[in-house]
């Protein structure tokens, strides 16, 4: 039987093959073949050029996501506990969430300066609302029958929160984390391009301006690898945190 991984690999293989064929047929100077891109990526990693920039970007990404998680979860717990806070807070979240984050980048650079602080501020800006909003949505969607069942068994409010509400919201949290991770990578690269002296975004801008196009694509490929790794890690977190969903989710395999 065809596994999920084989199907996923097939999609990537089709994309890579089409790209390779197109690049070889057209010999486009600004579109090197994937074999050349990945060979260059291996060379840049081997000589350490991209390792330092990659480490800088991944560290900023993880740090920003960790901060966003803490802020979102604390805010969700407070809003769940004190409903008036949620009523006052919801319109603020909804209004700032609609602002395009890249439009705010110049303001963040002025406020936090060039470097890690403005990158972290950007990641925090885009990453915490999806986690917070999803967790709050999850809290709203808790099956009232389960809460009533817990109450019928004399469960305390703390036990109901810990053993009924929190597990109910995990799938929503995972969905929020997935959105936050994708948005964080996007704004990190933009922030590094405009307001940093290291990182993959900075490397992309520098190599494209000096017409080292294969190096640019190699860095983009590295971003793709980081994106896929994040997705796999989040899948793994979901697999570990949602054991009751494995049967229904994977039974078709």
């Amino acid at each position: 039987m065809i596994s999920r991984w084989m199907l996923r690999a097939t999609g990537l293989l089709l994309l890579g093959t089409s790209w390779e064929v197109f690049a070889r047929l057209h010999s486009a100077a600004y579109l090197p073949a994937p074999t050349a891109v990945f060979a260059r990526l291996a060379a840049l990693l081997a000589d350490g050029t991209l390792i330092a920039d990659g480490k800088t970007s991944v560290a900023a990404l993880l740090e920003g996501l960790a901060l966003a998680n803490v802020l979102a979860i604390v805010a969700a717990v407070v809003c769940r506990r004190f409903y008036p806070v949620w009523l006052a807070f919801e319109p603020v979240v909804e209004s700032v969430r609609g602002l395009p984050p890249l439009a705010l980048l110049p303001a963040f650079l002025l406020l936090f300066g060039i470097g890690l602080e403005s990158e972290l501020a950007m990641i925090l800006w885009v990453a915490w609302p999806p986690i917070f909003v999803n967790v709050m949505h999850g809290v709203k969607e808790v099956d009232p029958r389960l809460v009533e069942a817990a109450r019928s068994m004399n469960a305390s409010d703390v036990k109901i929160f810990r053993d009924v509400i929190a597990p109910s919201t995990i799938p929503y949290y995972i969905a929020g984390l997935r959105l936050a991770a994708g948005a964080s990578l996007l704004v990190l690269v933009a922030a590094e391009m405009l307001g940093a002296s290291s990182g993959i975004g900075y490397f992309i801008l520098e190599t494209s301006q000096s017409f080292h196009i294969t190096d640019t694509y190699a860095a983009v490929a590295l971003l793709g690898v980081i994106g896929i790794t994040m997705s796999v890690v989040i899948d793994r977190i979901a697999w570990l945190c949602l054991p009751w969903r494995r049967v229904a989710k994977y039974e078709w395999e």
Partner: peptide, 21 residues
């Protein structure tokens, strides 16, 4: 509709009222 906690296995569900007690 049972109102079982889907994230708890059968034993965990039955232990819930005992934990609360």
């Amino acid at each position: 509709g049972y109102a079982l906690f889907p994230w708890r296995h059968a034993l965990g569900n039955v232990m819930f009222p005992l934990e609360a007690a």
